[in-house]
Design a protein around this nucleic acid. Sequence first.
DNA 1: CGCTCGGTTGATGCACATCAAAGGCTGTGG
DNA 2: CCACAGCCTTTGATGTGCATCAACCGAGCG
Lengths: 247, 247
Amino acid sequence: MLICRLNKGESVPTKIDGLKGAITELSGFPLFSGFDQNTISNLCLGGEIRVNKHRDLLFQFGLPAQQFGIVLSGAYKLSRVTPSGEESVIYFALPGDVVAALIMPQQGATYPVTVRAMGNSRILLLKKDIYLQSWIKIPDLIIQIQCLLSTRMNRFQNQKVMQRAPLASKVASLLLQLVTKDSNKDELEVPLPLTRKEIADNLGVAVESVIRVMSDWDKQGYIMTLDQNIVILKPDQLVHQLEYEAN
Amino acid sequence: MLICRLNKGESVPTKIDGLKGAITELSGFPLFSGFDQNTISNLCLGGEIRVNKHRDLLFQFGLPAQQFGIVLSGAYKLSRVTPSGEESVIYFALPGDVVAALIMPQQGATYPVTVRAMGNSRILLLKKDIYLQSWIKIPDLIIQIQCLLSTRMNRFQNQKVMQRAPLASKVASLLLQLVTKDSNKDELEVPLPLTRKEIADNLGVAVESVIRVMSDWDKQGYIMTLDQNIVILKPDQLVHQLEYEAN
DNA sequence: CGCTCGGTTGATGCACATCAAAGGCTGTGG
DNA sequence: CCACAGCCTTTGATGTGCATCAACCGAGCG
């Protein structure tokens, strides 16, 4: 069962060289906190803003890694294909997140995942060289990058700890993880278009199982889905799913 | 079902301040490749070599992280306890691996995992300050650290891709991952004492299931277990387990 | 209007969990 | 020295959560 299908038109990604506006956006991310706009522009020399539509391909697993990216808006999906042809979603990258930065230092490295846009998204692409020649030499920047990686690593670890939990717990955990911005009471919105298949592929389970869990929550009024945008109406109820009674 | 039990005596870890001998060891690791012994000793100022016995506690999940480590010999197990009281093994750190380096930059960070020795092991403990004041400023060192992290991240990703594979594939994948040194033909030895429970806790499955898979391999002559040391007699057969037919 | 895609539901089956029992080994204390 | 407790391993019997298979619906689209 092959997954690859031609994306309608495979839209030639727009390329915009002037990135004045983006600098302001960048200065709002934790990655660049404490840097003035001048420094930021120097750090982004030779950068290119890529504007993507839903499912546009950004990086392809296995190809030589020449660039890394900083997500500006929207979201990107990092995934790989399993030996049996299924898609396995590794990570969802949101604005402010870096993509492929970790492998820049390695000689002849290839992308360890395939990266695709989810919905309309924008990303700033930077050349490998700038990472090796500028970024690496700025301790404050390295610290910020390591913080981002640490967060991501933590997420992996949390998923590992949940491995033996029932499916409902895993789905709840994933959804809650994605909204960890301001945990203001009721009405959290998952900030990216997410199909049930993508959730299943991330958790490594069957679509139908995810659907059974989520449409139940839908009926209970815990969540709401509008055109692939998920809204958590009762966060407390989802948190409750996490405590699956230690027998 | 609580797991915490007093380790017989909880042996007071030996502390040795002179680390002359260790410098030679360190210079053999990829982490310090390209550094002369003088530089290495400066990078390890204030370091302390901890000698541990089987199951000695090194770092405790949740406590403030003041130190990081470089495994010298033996192995260390990074794990967490699940909400239901089971142990979840996140990672096995072998000689040359760094532990807790990634979280050094974060203010008031706590250890994200509990770390215990597996068998007799030695680790070089370094202070947070040295990381922030020296390490971070040396691009070549940062590059090596990021390579180590990249390898670890890759391992997580591989496990994620195998999530839907049958148990036998997962066990095979884990064992093969641990011996990825020189893949010289037949007779690979897993370089750390590993119980079936630890394998199970790493894969997030039941002990009995792991045992059923492995004792089958034992009978087939694919592997051999001597006192918790696993030897892979027929690597090809284990590799064969990975290709679980994409129907 | 046929196509594909995402979501949904029900019937059936299987891989693995769970429970139970037992033997070997090690360290510990009476 | 032996009894005992823990841990690791093993094996069998039984149960179940989720996968799999199949079918259907509505929406968007060329």
